[in-house]
Nucleic acid binder design. Structure first.
Lengths: 186, 186
DNA sequence: AATTTATGTCAGTCATGTTGACTTAATTTA
DNA sequence: TAAATTAAGTCAACATGACTGACATAAATT
């Protein structure tokens, strides 16, 4: 085991660490510091467990979270183009390419040449892809249902409003365009 | 560009894809399928933007999200041991080792030999580490404050209850032990 | 006819997670 | 006290999913 209090010169250069070791801070950061730690941490733990349910199913199929996201949005917005999918996921096309190829090769997602613009590829789920999307969403939906039950279902609107307000303003129109959201079609 | 409707034999073997191409499913998955897509998607988008704020600060320091989590919990639970930190983060010690070493080398986190059990290493932030934790938490807290304002602050309790209920039951005691949460000290 | 756009692909890199094997020092147990 | 267990650290190899940059093809637009 190396010396318990040592520091490399390289780190000192990058971070400008003073040569003299300062004292360890022993008091905990707390709400008194003006930061909403309760919700910050709840959000972290909640999201971690929220994603763990589908992860198990995905593991069996040798898929990852990236596959989940693609399957999800293709099922929610069938016929969307590759460019539109990239826009929703906010990743690069090189990043999408691998998982999309795997999903197409294994028959979960199908491509159809764009009817107006034949350069485009419209993405659709196959029956198998539809089934997978439902299977992945089911445990998440169950978790939400149970959490809402514990909270009191009358608070549903407030929770939706809060989560929507947590999203960057410029992305909210995109969310509202998803099917089955109150604000969608007339 | 390769044939738009082709499928490898390998994929067919693993996933048991039928030889005949089935038809693309053209209707969108929707609330009518009995799944709470609204909250599933809001949670996804909200968490993505929630983590993007600190990501920018971390990028400047050549740190990542893993560093953020370590800095956060060491500041919230100063003096916790390596084993306790692993328990909170739910990662392996080899995974933690890299980022923890970097944080110690660059003077954000300090180790103190356990007073009772000298095998243990208690982790504390330095003044610099405390400062970083606050700097990373600030934009997240601001986002939450603004979202709560839009929702109506009277719904705060419901939102906390909901998020807490989204966490796996067995982890809730751990959350409640964090400082400044109503249910903590008397 | 030239340019732009939509998609796909190759190659390399990085961050962060994993498993497995092993060491050292300290504590606990038999 | 000797043996076993525990806390922490380390080495090596690997997987996933992100990134950048460069380039190819076909189709649409200018």
């Amino acid at each position: 085991m190396t010396d318990i209090n040592s520091r490399s010169d390289a780190a000192r250069a990058v971070h400008g660490v003073p040569a003299a070791a300062d004292a360890p801070v022993k008091d905990a950061l707390s709400v008194e510091d003006g930061i909403d730690f309760a919700i910050i941490e709840l959000f972290f733990f909640a999201y971690r467990d929220f994603t763990s349910d589908p992860d198990e199913i995905l593991g069996e199929l040798d898929f990852g979270r990236a596959h989940h996201r693609v399957v999800h949005f293709v099922n929610r917005m069938p016929g969307l183009t590759v460019a539109e999918l990239l826009d929703v996921l906010q990743i690069t096309k090189q990043s999408l390419a691998r998982v999309l190829k795997q999903l197409i090769d294994s028959g979960y997602i199908m491509q159809v040449q764009g009817p107006r613009d034949r350069r485009q590829r419209e993405l659709y789920p196959s029956a198998r892809g539809r089934e997978l999307a439902l299977r992945l969403a089911a445990p998440q939906s169950r978790r939400i249902r149970e959490a809402l039950r514990q909270t009191g279902p009358e608070h549903r609107a407030a929770i939706e409003t809060f989560l929507r307000a947590m999203v960057n303003t410029e992305l909210r129109p995109q969310i509202d365009r998803l099917p089955g959201n109150l604000s969608a079609e007339p």
